[in-house]
Design a protein around this nucleic acid. Structure first.
Length: 123
RNA sequence: UGAGUCGGUUGGGUGGUCGCGGCCGGGCCCUCCUCUCGAGGAACGGGACCCGGUCGAGGAAGGUCGGGACUCCGCAGGGCAGGGUGCUGGCUAACGGCCAGUCGAGGCGACUCGAAGGAAAGUGCAACAGAAAGCAGACCGCCGAUGGGCCAGUCGUACGCCGGCUCGCCACAGGCAAGGGUGCAACGGUGCGGUAAGAGCGCACCAGCGCCCGGGGUGACCCGGGCGGCUAUGUAAACCCCACCCGGAGCAAGGUCAAGCGUGGGACGGCCGGCCCGGCCCAUGUCCCCAGGUAGACCGCUCAGAUGGAUGGCCACCCGUUCUGGUCCCCGGACCGGAACGACAGAAUCCCGCCUACAGGCCGACUCGCCGU
């Protein structure tokens, strides 16, 4: 990224973006990758292209709850991940949720996610 | 004012903050063209970036139970098998749906509920109880007229332990099914006559069945009258019979484009002396052409239109409901404060229905009761 490009107003991502995980093969890789658990949250990560924003996907099984419950959980997690976006590394994340997460408050969920991400950074 | 019936409707609001998806417009970038290398232009196209605008979950979006649209496959015609539906008339693209009615059952009533064709085509079943459960049968009980036995009286005598008649007893033959008891259901009900006792045995009325006639209704059916034999059980969400309907799979349907590797065909090759046709040989090769087809992409797909799944997260206030603390008084409320809760539930090709879930709130019509006038 050169200064000329910035002046020209090129496709510069101004905010911290998060992309989706799009290809099936990447999911297979994520599934085989190492997992970090903290409370009801499970996170796995594989490195990727540093030029691209991090990719994040969520896996919430049917046994977690009804469609309403699962939707609310995913939306809360998405907001949490968005706030934590600057600390993410390039690559793909897969975030899993256990059924017990439905009873947590937003603050409790936040604490679990942050701790899980920190542990992932340390390793 | 209390209890209730039916129908409809609503499904929290406002603000702040951080965000998402589609479409439209603009910018920027990619791409292409020109040039005096600053930039200018473009009829198309692409973008995961920025700005603005606009639209963005439900009454059930749910269950996937009926229909239909749509798609592919199958298909001469007829029958059998299999499945579904089952009072009547309308509505609907269609339905197992809706509306109006008929009949039956329940409720004081407003109303509610009902797979509601056929049991006189045939087969099966009817547990327990009970004597007996479908065409016969008799436990207790009633009778014992008739026949039989016994006792007594009386009459006749051809005097016999004979015969006739009468009263009584027995309950042996036999008659009865009214009453008791069992059961969801017991061979119509009530009354009178009748009888030894009884019985549709006879009669009257009622109920039921069948047939006929008249009237009303499009029809299911209803109303009235007559005749008949006097009773012909229930069960078809048991088999079955009758009438009508039904091809299969489903958007992961299906369609378009189609990399790489491989496959098949063709061209270029060799041989039949040369050329054309034709045939044979195949080994290798080719910036070569074609075909089906895989990954993948797109369409199907929508004025919400995703595809690890957008339509939101957090906070504050307000509003409801419930609980609770305090003050005041005319004991039921007024005022001030606190806490908890705010349901069921999230589109996935679309539409019409059904069923199921649901905190509260609102509106209308009606019924039964109590009080007052």
């Amino acid at each position: 990224m050169t200064p000329e490009d910035e002046l020209a107003g090129g496709p510069t991502p101004t905010t911290t973006q998060i992309w989706r995980v799009e290809h099936r093969e990447l999911f297979e890789v994520l599934r085989r990758a190492r997992r970090r658990r903290h409370g009801p949250i499970t996170i796995s990560w594989v490195p990727g292209d540093p030029a691209e924003p991090p990719r994040v996907a969520y896996t919430i099984g049917r046994r977690v709850g009804t469609a309403v419950v699962r939707n609310r959980l995913r939306r809360r997690l998405r907001m949490l991940i968005r706030e934590a976006a600057p600390t993410l590394r390039p690559g793909a994340y897969l975030i899993g949720v256990a059924p017990s997460a439905t009873t947590w408050t937003y603050a409790q969920l936040e604490a679990h996610v942050h701790k899980a991400l920190k542990e992932l950074d340390r390793s």
